[in-house]
């Protein structure tokens, strides 16, 4: 008797547990800004200490100085211009080749700006945390045009050695080293290996042979800043209408 009673009870519980029994009615949202002005948990400071000490010993080294704050912007920003110039200068130096233009993928610059004042190793690591190397490719003008159209559709990428306008997601009025692009001519173009391997959907570059010395993009930035510092120059860059929107 007792047994036969227990079965339907358990069955009922089983069925009930398999159906949602509550439904959300309302939600209140709040985004807290983490300002460090309120209660902080100091046990995390202690936890980070051993890591922080060795991070700081290398990352606090000062490489040079930024004269003004350089912003990351599209279609063109001061930070992008400075970094692309550094990439062009250093890749020419390391490869001993006549590089025509150097590019950086906009999303690969991981800081929104480089603040006025001392530039530390740590700041360059934050800006370029990836261990990407510099690759050079000989691109035929028509392939370069496809690549430029792709960067135009993505809102414009930092570049040195080339100017262009963006019209309807395409690159127009392209000038390389001051000359209009020739779709039959070959150009020496520098990108990070991430891009030459087809990253950011740069499929048009993927199967084209690369030349590489294994030189890190980040090292190019750091050595360029040190070089400028040794020459008594502060880091600065301006908007030069390298990449603009066509009216």
């Amino acid at each position: 008797m007792k047994k036969s009673n227990a079965v339907p009870v358990l069955l009922f519980i089983f069925i009930a547990s398999c159906q949602p029994s509550y439904q959300s009615l309302s939600v209140q949202y709040k985004d807290y800004r983490i300002t460090n002005s309120e209660e902080i948990d100091s046990s995390y400071i202690v936890f980070l200490e051993p890591y922080k000490d060795s991070v700081n010993s290398t990352m606090n080294i000062i490489l040079g100085e930024a004269e003004t704050t350089l912003q990351k912007k599209q279609p063109e920003g001061e930070l992008g211009n400075f970094l692309a110039d550094a990439l062009l200068v250093m890749s020419r130096k390391k490869m001993g080749k006549a590089v025509d233009a150097a590019f950086l993928n906009y999303n690969g610059i991981r800081s929104s700006g480089l603040a006025q004042g001392n530039i530390t190793v740590g700041k360059i690591f934050e800006l370029m945390p990836f261990d990407n190397v510099i690759n050079m490719q000989q691109l035929k003008g028509d392939v370069l045009q496809q690549f430029l159209d792709h960067t135009a559709a993505l809102g414009g990428w930092p570049v040195s050695g080339l100017t262009m306008k963006i019209k309807d997601n395409r690159a127009t009025d392209v000038q390389i080293q001051g000359q209009p692009i020739d779709h039959d001519k070959y150009y020496n173009i520098v990108n990070s290996d991430y891009i030459t391997n087809g990253g950011d959907n740069c499929v048009m570059l993927k199967n084209i042979p690369v030349e590489s010395t294994g030189y890190l993009v980040r090292d190019a930035f750091m050595e360029y800043i040190q070089q400028e510092q040794q020459g008594g120059k502060k880091i600065n860059a301006a908007i030069e209408n390298r990449v603009t929107y066509a009216e």
Binding site: Y32, E38, Y44, F47, L48, G117
Partner: peptide
């Protein structure tokens, strides 16, 4: 520094908030 996010974030402050 002069950056727009200066002083923001970090695990110590986030943990304090989560705890509260």
């Amino acid at each position: 520094d002069a950056g727009k996010n200066a002083g923001l974030g970090g695990v110590a402050a986030r943990a304090g908030l989560i705890h509260s």
